[in-house]
Amino acid sequence: MRPFDTLIRLAEQALDEKRKALSQLEAGLERARVARAALDVELAAEQKAAAGSMEAGRLYGAYAQAMLARRRQADRLVDDVEMAVEAAREEVRTAFAELKRYEITHDARLAKLAAEEARKEQAVADETAQNLKRRENDRL
């Protein structure tokens, strides 16, 4: 059963690695979302400042254009990381399914071997009982 034990252990390691990668991607996604939200907060603060000052109002147009570009870039980053997270989740699901397949196959083989061993032991016990019965009948 060593080959299956090794195969299961390797599949578990692969699954763990994929889970770690997924965790890192999810953390990166959260950071990207926080950064995107920070841009909205910054924009709101600048709008408020621009509304309060005539000079700031004149400069706000250039700032707004730059901010829109930064927001689009942040949105693209969030979208890209979301796609990477979904791909990593699919890899985790696939690795988990593979591991379960190995474990189920291993358990089935162990059950089959145990059943075979029990059958052999029962055959030996039956033969012993038959021999004892035969000896008893021979003595009579």
Rank of each mutant, 00 (worst) to 15 (best):
K20E: 15
K20T: 11
K20Q: 15
A21I: 01
A21H: 08
A21S: 10
A21F: 07
S23Y: 09
S23H: 13
S23P: 01
Q24R: 13
Q24S: 13
Q24P: 01
Q24I: 11
Q24T: 10
E26T: 04
E26R: 10
E26K: 08
A27F: 02
A27W: 03
L29W: 03
E30F: 02
E30T: 11
A32G: 07
R33I: 04
V34H: 08
V34E: 12
V34D: 08
V34Q: 08
A35I: 07
R36Y: 06
R36V: 00
A37W: 02
A38E: 15
V41N: 10
V41Y: 03
E42V: 07
A44F: 04
A45Q: 11
A45N: 06
K48E: 15
A49H: 07
A49M: 03
A49K: 12
A50M: 05
A50W: 03
A51P: 04
A51I: 07
A51L: 15
G52L: 09
G52P: 03
G52C: 04
S53I: 05
M54G: 13
M54Q: 15
M54F: 14
E55C: 01
E55D: 14
E55W: 10
E55H: 08
A56M: 05
A56S: 04
G57A: 13
G57V: 08
R58K: 14
R58H: 15
R58S: 11
Y60F: 15
Y60A: 10
G61F: 15
G61P: 09
G61M: 12
A62G: 14
A62M: 12
A62Y: 12
A62T: 12
Y63K: 03
Y63P: 03
Y63R: 15
A64R: 06
Q65S: 13
A66E: 15
A66N: 14
M67G: 04
M67V: 11
M67P: 00
L68M: 14
A69G: 06
A69V: 09
A69K: 12
A69F: 07
R70P: 01
R71G: 04
R71H: 05
R71Q: 14
Q73T: 12
Q73F: 12
Q73I: 00
Q73M: 11
Q73D: 14
A74N: 08
A74M: 04
A74S: 08
D75I: 00
D75C: 01
D75S: 08
D75H: 09
D75W: 00
R76G: 00
R76C: 00
L77V: 03
L77E: 11
V78I: 04
V78H: 01
V78M: 03
D79V: 00
D79I: 00
D79K: 12
D80K: 05
V81G: 01
V81R: 02
E82A: 08
E82Y: 06
M83H: 03
M83C: 00
M83Q: 10
A84T: 05
V85W: 04
E86F: 02
A87F: 07
A88H: 05
A88R: 08
A88F: 05
E90D: 10
E90R: 03
E91W: 01
E91T: 01
V92T: 06
V92C: 06
V92L: 01
